[in-house]
Computed example of a mutant assay.
Amino acid sequence: MAWVVGAGMLLGLLFIAMGTATLRTGWLLPTARRHVTRPQLHGLGALLMGASLALQSLMYFEILPSPSWETRFYGGNALLLGGMLLLLVSQVLPLRRSRDHTHPSDV
């Protein structure tokens, strides 16, 4: 069981690194560049998902004090699903367009 939690910890750290890179520089994975229209939301979603996975692992290995199982379950799921929702929204929302580009014939 410890190797599953350790793999989750590594995945959480990867998500945190990816979210930080996206928020600071706007860099995205090459497979996501075509689909993501809002990189800031994508980075924030990756940070939330990474924090959820990392906190769950730290509580399992008793590095952090562990609250009740209900708090861990509902809190971890809220962070994970919130991050997934932000990743979805970052891909579904249309591109932002300035007013000049939407009606060029009004000049």
Rank of each mutant, 00 (worst) to 15 (best):
M1R: 14
A2E: 07
W3D: 14
W3I: 14
W3G: 05
V4K: 09
V4N: 07
G6S: 11
G6I: 08
G8L: 12
G8H: 07
M9Y: 10
M9I: 09
M9H: 05
L13R: 02
F15L: 15
I16M: 13
I16F: 08
M18A: 11
T20C: 07
A21D: 07
T22W: 01
L23T: 01
L23C: 08
R24Q: 10
R24G: 05
T25M: 07
G26L: 05
G26T: 07
G26Y: 04
W27C: 01
L29S: 06
P30G: 06
T31V: 11
A32H: 02
R33L: 07
R33A: 15
R34S: 10
H35G: 00
H35C: 00
H35P: 00
V36I: 15
V36F: 02
V36N: 02
T37W: 00
T37D: 02
R38N: 09
P39S: 06
L41G: 02
G43K: 01
G43M: 03
A46S: 13
A46P: 00
L47K: 00
L47N: 01
L47T: 04
M49D: 00
G50Y: 02
S52V: 02
A54G: 04
A54V: 15
A54W: 09
A54Q: 06
L55W: 04
Q56R: 08
S57C: 06
M59A: 09
F61I: 12
E62A: 12
I63L: 14
L64A: 13
S66M: 07
S66V: 08
P67Q: 07
S68D: 08
E70P: 07
E70I: 11
E70L: 14
R72Y: 02
F73D: 05
G75D: 09
G75T: 07
G75F: 07
G76C: 05
A78P: 04
L79N: 02
L81R: 05
G82Q: 04
G82R: 01
M84T: 06
L85T: 15
L88G: 09
L88S: 08
L88P: 00
L93V: 14
L95Q: 11
L95P: 06
R96P: 09
R97N: 13
R97Q: 15
S98C: 12
S98A: 14
R99D: 10
T102P: 08
T102I: 15
D106P: 01
V107A: 12
